[in-house]
Amino acid sequence: KTVHVNGVQYDFDNPEQAERFAKEMAKKAGLQIQFHGDQIKIE
Score class of each variant (00 low, 15 high):
K1R: 13
K1D: 02
K1S: 11
K1G: 04
K1Y: 15
T2I: 08
T2N: 02
T2L: 05
V3F: 05
V3M: 03
V3T: 01
V3A: 03
V3C: 11
V3E: 01
V3Y: 05
H4L: 14
H4Q: 07
H4I: 14
V5K: 02
V5W: 14
V5I: 12
V5R: 02
V5A: 02
V5F: 14
N6I: 02
N6A: 07
N6V: 02
N6R: 05
N6L: 12
N6C: 15
N6G: 08
G7M: 03
G7F: 03
G7I: 02
G7W: 03
G7A: 02
G7D: 01
V8Q: 06
V8W: 07
V8R: 11
V8D: 02
V8K: 10
V8C: 15
Q9F: 06
Q9C: 15
Q9G: 03
Q9T: 12
Q9P: 09
Q9A: 11
Y10P: 00
D11S: 13
D11R: 14
D11G: 04
D11W: 15
D11N: 13
F12P: 00
F12A: 01
F12D: 00
F12I: 02
F12C: 10
F12M: 03
F12V: 01
D13E: 11
D13C: 15
D13K: 04
D13M: 06
N14P: 00
N14M: 03
N14S: 13
N14A: 03
N14G: 03
P15W: 14
P15T: 10
P15F: 13
P15I: 12
P15H: 11
P15S: 12
E16Q: 09
E16I: 08
E16N: 04
Q17M: 09
Q17G: 02
Q17H: 04
Q17V: 05
Q17E: 14
A18K: 00
A18E: 00
A18H: 00
A18Q: 01
A18W: 08
E19A: 12
E19Q: 12
E19G: 03
E19S: 08
E19D: 07
R20C: 15
R20M: 12
R20S: 10
R20A: 13
R20P: 00
R20I: 11
F21L: 01
F21K: 00
F21D: 00
F21T: 00
F21Q: 00
A22Y: 09
A22R: 09
A22L: 10
A22W: 10
A22M: 09
A22E: 01
A22S: 03
K23A: 10
K23F: 13
K23I: 13
K23G: 03
E24G: 02
E24V: 05
E24L: 13
E24P: 00
M25A: 06
M25W: 12
M25P: 00
M25R: 01
M25N: 01
A26N: 04
A26S: 05
A26Q: 03
K27C: 15
K27D: 11
K27N: 12
K28V: 12
K28F: 12
K28C: 15
K28T: 09
K28D: 05
K28A: 12
A29C: 15
A29S: 10
A29K: 11
A29W: 15
G30N: 08
G30I: 04
G30M: 07
G30D: 07
G30V: 03
G30P: 01
G30T: 04
L31S: 06
L31V: 11
L31D: 03
L31Q: 05
L31P: 01
Q32S: 12
Q32H: 09
Q32E: 10
Q32D: 07
Q32F: 06
Q32C: 15
I33W: 04
I33T: 03
I33P: 04
I33K: 02
Q34M: 12
Q34A: 09
Q34K: 11
Q34R: 10
Q34V: 14
Q34F: 13
F35L: 09
F35Y: 13
F35V: 09
F35W: 14
F35N: 05
H36E: 11
H36M: 13
H36P: 06
G37E: 08
G37L: 05
G37Y: 07
D38S: 09
D38L: 10
D38A: 09
D38R: 02
Q39F: 12
Q39M: 12
Q39K: 09
Q39V: 13
Q39L: 12
I40L: 08
I40D: 05
I40T: 04
I40G: 05
I40S: 04
K41A: 09
I42E: 05
I42L: 13
E43V: 13
E43R: 06
E43T: 11
E43K: 06
E43P: 08
